[in-house]
Design a protein around this nucleic acid. Structure first.
Length: 419
RNA sequence: CGGGAUGUAGCAUAAUGGUAGUGUACGCGGUUUGGGACCGUGUGGCCCGGGUUCGAUUCCCGGCUUCCCGACCA
């Protein structure tokens, strides 16, 4: 993509109404646009990154047998009344509205209910289980206080997967696979090292749920980490009893702030029973389906990456989620020879399938281009200039480390295309 | 939802009971050209409603907005 055609622009100053690092940098770099408190639009660069995150998650879900669907945002209140999650006294963050005929509807806060009801049309025998369905879908939550930029919004993208298993053992087997899948997601997104599987309060079907907590000062949660074992506890279950049960020693636990970047949960028959999702076993008996839920918010994950990896100059994206792999920065483009050379490199790289953002702006000065490049945070900056043209070299800068290399055109192609 | 702030140009800010200045961005002219360079010039603005007042962007009341602290976050 040519930067001269990109409709977004960078800004030197962050908006006064954003304090969160993620919002400041993402807005300055032109990745997101704030519509309202807690509601952000994803712009061309931001959407590319968001889609990369989504794709990583999708691949890992598919690998474990997940089948992708998209459920509706608009929700029928009836199904939620059956599980007693419609009443404002029970769940207070619904956006509610009604149809012209008076039927009461809401915008989905999560999708256990409709997913369970929908599956009841397809599951009737033990032969139909287990099954796994998931989606990427915008959730709406009428939070009393949106904050932390894109980390806690009123409308946000969520991946939610549900497992439909015959019994607890079958569910647990899948749950364990999901834990590993989640680890792979965070690893691939570039924050595996900072992300801990964390014990948290469970629910009626299990003592614990597990959260994926990414250590960051921007976090809202307090966790206690045992660095030797890599086990962590959420402060909500930080008791002597739990510590002993997990075989940990209190003195070894280090308190840290962390962002909840994912969650896996045992649901048991909490939804299948009230919604009538049962199957016939081999003896012909009706048995409620045993369920679990698995959530990751791609938009929150994007914010987490900014919080954890961004520096004073701007965004720093891991290659796997960067909007482009290469930021081709053209200097001295008023010189037609340099321009032709830069265009040739752009054509060669893009022709070989390399994602390139080409800063082809003729009027912008070098300093501005470098600052923009740092802010936008693409992993590799390739500088084409008159100086470089004269000795046949490109300057290649790695954004994350600041490493600078001088490569010939051939070395450049070897480096970026061969893999 | 309780408490505290806030609202001036696309963005960031200043002053002011007599209709507002600066930076940046943007347009034009020129000098520059590897880290947001410079000179000149121009366009562009007081959240909404009510009250006080000869006169309100300014003071008062209400609303809304946004932010912060707390509560909440299934």
């Amino acid at each position: 993509m040519r930067q001269s055609q990109l409709f977004t622009k960078t800004r030197k100053e962050a908006p006064a109404d954003e304090v969160a690092k993620n919002a400041q940098l993402l807005i300055r770099a032109g990745y997101v646009h704030k519509e309202m408190a807690g509601v952000y639009t994803y712009l061309p660069l931001g959407l590319r990154t968001l889609n990369k995150i989504v794709q990583i998650i999708r691949e890992e879900m598919n690998r474990e047998g997940g089948q992708e669907v998209v459920m509706t945002a608009l929700q029928d209140s009836e199904v939620w009344e059956k599980t007693d999650r419609w009443d404002d006294a029970k769940v207070d963050n619904w956006f509610k509205s009604e149809l012209k005929n008076g039927t009461v509807v809401g915008l989905g806060i999560t999708h256990e209910e409709p997913m369970t009801r929908m599956m009841s049309g397809f599951v009737s025998s033990y032969r139909d289980l287990p099954r796994y369905a998931y989606q990427f879908q915008n959730k709406f939550r009428n939070e009393t206080r949106a904050k932390s930029g894109i980390m806690r919004g009123r409308e946000f993208l969520m991946k939610d997967l549900y497992d439909f298993s015959k019994d607890e053992a079958e569910h647990n087997e899948f749950y364990n696979r999901m834990r590993e899948a989640y680890k792979r997601v965070f690893e691939r997104a570039g924050i595996g090292e900072q992300t801990y599987v964390t014990f948290a309060s469970g629910g009626i079907f299990s003592e614990f749920s597990e959260e994926f907590q990414t250590v960051s000062n921007a976090g809202e949660d307090i966790i206690y980490v045992d660095e030797k074992s890599g086990i962590a506890l959420n402060s909500e279950v930080y008791t002597d009893e739990v510590i002993a049960k997990l075989g940990l020693v209190k003195e070894d636990l280090i308190e840290k702030k962390a962002i909840e970047s994912g969650n896996i949960f045992h649901l048991g028959t909490k939804f299948s029973e009230p919604l009538g999702l049962t199957y016939k076993n081999e003896a012909g008996e009706d048995i409620p389906v045993y369920m679990g839920s698995y959530g990751i918010g791609p938009t929150r994950l994007m914010g987490t990456l900014v919080e954890v990896l961004g520096d004073e100059k701007g965004l720093v994206w891991p290659e796997a989620v960067a909007p482009f792999k290469v930021h081709l920065v053209g200097l001295n483009l008023e010189d037609s020879e340099v321009k032709d050379w830069a265009e040739g490199v752009y054509t060669s790289l893009t022709g070989a399938g390399v994602e390139v953002l080409f800063d082809d702006r003729v009027e912008a000065r070098a300093g501005e281009k470098f600052s923009d490049s740092d802010l936008i945070g693409i992993p590799y900056r390739v500088v084409v200039s008159k100086k470089g043209k004269e000795n046949g070299m490109f300057e290649v800068v790695t954004r994350a480390t600041g490493e600078v290399r001088q490569l010939t055109e051939e070395e450049l192609y070897t480096d970026f295309i061969s893999e």
